[in-house]
């Protein structure tokens, strides 16, 4: 369980997050949505202790992110950031392999190698696993980064816009895969998504942020609804039903 309590965050004078309190249940997929600049990435990076908390607290299974040793946390939660400027020049296999570092501390075992190969297989990276990260396409790089986060095999995985740069095929298969894993009840995911339909189709719960405050927290049907979308994005969006799935026609 993730508990966020009274978290506020400022950059200088501007208030980015204001008094966010919520809890995210164990297992399942939670989608984090909201307009550009709403504070999604900031919240995620606070959860992943990439930035120090200014006020409030965040706990994973009762362990506070500001107090638990960072090497322990690395076995509990992993994050994929929205912008991934990597300074190292290394092969995709090596990059994915670093996801195992919290477990082997530099001395990979057979199990670690197996996990890496599985991830490479799964994300269709075997063909190019020897190529350097600056020698592959944007989507291929994104897949490698997702694979790396995956390899870390943490109970909680925070993904900031993982679908960026992915084509339709890989976007859908990634979401399906996450759903499968979530259904085993072993891992839970918090995913920042811009496509509301993905959120509706795959998430158990949706958290919507707007201007740094918590706007909505509930099941998809609370959000996939014309009025809610109107307040969130200030635009009129028709919602229809396809079989038993709500679909927002936001592109029309």
């Amino acid at each position: 369980m993730i508990e966020i309590n009274g978290v506020s965050h400022n950059y200088g004078k501007s208030k980015i997050l204001q008094n966010i309190s919520l809890s995210i249940k164990e297992s399942g997929i939670t989608a984090l949505i909201g307009p550009n600049g709403a504070g999604k990435s900031t919240l995620l990076s606070l959860m992943a202790r990439l930035q120090p908390l200014q006020t409030g607290s965040i706990m994973f299974d009762g362990h506070s992110v500001s107090q638990t040793p960072t090497r322990e946390l690395a076995k509990t939660l992993a994050i994929l950031r929205q912008d991934n400027a990597l300074s190292s020049r290394m092969s995709l296999r090596d990059l994915v392999g670093f996801g195992r570092y919290p477990h082997h501390k530099g001395r990979p075992t057979a199990k670690d190698h197996r996990a890496v190969e599985e991830a490479l297989d799964y994300f269709d990276l075997q063909d190019m696993s020897g190529r350097f990260i600056d020698e592959v396409s944007g989507g291929q790089k994104q897949r490698a980064l997702v694979a790396m986060a995956f390899c870390q095999e943490t109970k909680y995985l925070l993904l900031d816009e993982p679908l960026n740069n992915l084509d339709m095929y890989y976007a859908r298969s990634l979401m399906k895969r996450l759903r499968e894993i979530a259904d085993t009840g072993k891992r839970s995911f918090v995913i920042v998504l811009h496509d509301i339909n993905y959120a509706g189709a795959y998430a158990n719960e949706i958290i919507a942020l707007k201007d740094g405050t918590l706007a909505i927290h509930g099941p998809p049907q609370d959000v996939l609804e014309t009025n809610a979308l109107q307040t969130l994005y200030s635009m009129k969006i028709t919602v229809t039903q396809h079989q038993d799935q709500l679909v927002a026609l936001h592109h029309l």
Partner: peptide, 11 residues
């Protein structure tokens, strides 16, 4: 790998 990645990997 950079600050965020290193922290994420528990360093």
């Amino acid at each position: 790998l950079g600050r965020s990645n290193a922290i994420n990997l528990g360093v």
